[in-house]
Amino acid sequence: MSRTRFAPDRGLSARMTVTIFLLGLLYVAFMAILIAVGVQAVTVLVIAAGLLLVQYFFSDKIALFAMHGREVSPEEAPELHGIIDRLSAMADMPKPRVAIADSDMPNAFATGRNQKNAVVCVTTGIMRRLDASELEGVLAHEMSHVAHRDVAVMTIASFLGIVAGLMTRFALYTGLGGRRDSNNGPPIGLIIFLVSALVYAVSFLLTRALSRYRELAADRAGALLTQRPSALASALVKVSGDIARIPTSDLRQAQPFNAFYFTPALSGQSVASLFSTHPSLERRLDQLAKISATLGR
């Protein structure tokens, strides 16, 4: 984590390290199995590495394009820039670029591989629903993601899942599914498919667990920076409640971007916590209540 005044989170750092280490072990084992069954994985690795580099270096542009966000000047959004200016000064970090997405979905996100390339984006829906202190709490949460370099870490963590998915397609498209080894053993493609599916499932669960903790860490760091955990809690309640009233079709379109958002777009159906990108609203509010009690507010 770069030096800022955001509260350090050793738990987050430890979880990031452990997750990357476990994913690295999984990657080595995956490659060893593929080599053992005689698969030439160079092409897949080159493609996966290329996708990773594109995602890493252009994550800010990709996210803004996908979510229809546009950068705005201080003249276009003076209040929003004012909050970002204040938070940047409080956190002693470079000011990120500021963007707005024209969407009624009340949400916000931050992206960019480091502080110098970061962008914080809010939707018109969240700006309309929250007051200044609540919006400041949300933006402090998003800027803590930038300070902790969450985007870079999650991009790297997703690499193994990309490789596993590409290997599965490689086996299907090249006809390995029906090809047997020299000893008339099981089809090579079947082995690749099963191993890839297992690797993808494990990497998926590891990255989702890390994603949930980083959201709690961002809540904590943002609340401690502003010293107003109640404002962030109020924003969470408002945003979560209003999202439940968004049309289902709009929610489904937004769900692929849940990992980026301040709070996930859910269609009202229960989602197993094991597969969620975010902790439950109750857990987030409970943490903020404890912080508020500690601060005496």
Rank of each mutant, 00 (worst) to 15 (best):
S2E: 15
S2K: 15
R3E: 14
T4G: 08
R5V: 02
D9A: 05
R10I: 04
G11A: 05
L12C: 01
V18L: 14
V18R: 08
L23C: 04
L26H: 03
V28A: 13
I33R: 07
G38Y: 08
V39G: 01
A41C: 06
V46M: 12
L52Y: 15
L53Q: 07
Y56S: 02
I62N: 03
A63I: 03
A63P: 01
R70S: 14
E75G: 04
E76D: 13
A89K: 14
A91L: 08
D92R: 13
A99M: 06
N107I: 03
G112M: 08
V119M: 04
V120E: 07
C121Y: 01
V122H: 06
T123V: 02
M127N: 11
R128E: 15
A132L: 09
L135T: 02
G137P: 06
S144G: 12
A147G: 10
D150G: 05
D150T: 09
L160E: 02
R169V: 13
A171E: 07
G177S: 13
R179H: 09
S182T: 13
P186T: 10
P186M: 14
I192C: 11
I192V: 15
F193V: 10
L194N: 10
S196N: 03
L198W: 10
L205M: 15
R208S: 10
Y213H: 15
L216S: 12
D219P: 00
A221D: 01
A223G: 01
L224H: 09
T226W: 01
P229Q: 05
A231W: 00
L232A: 07
S234Q: 12
K238N: 04
V239R: 00
D242F: 02
A244D: 11
I246A: 03
I246N: 05
D250I: 10
L251K: 13
Y261Q: 09
T263F: 12
A265Q: 07
L266S: 15
T277I: 06
H278A: 09
L281H: 06
D286V: 00
I291Q: 01
S292G: 14
G296D: 09
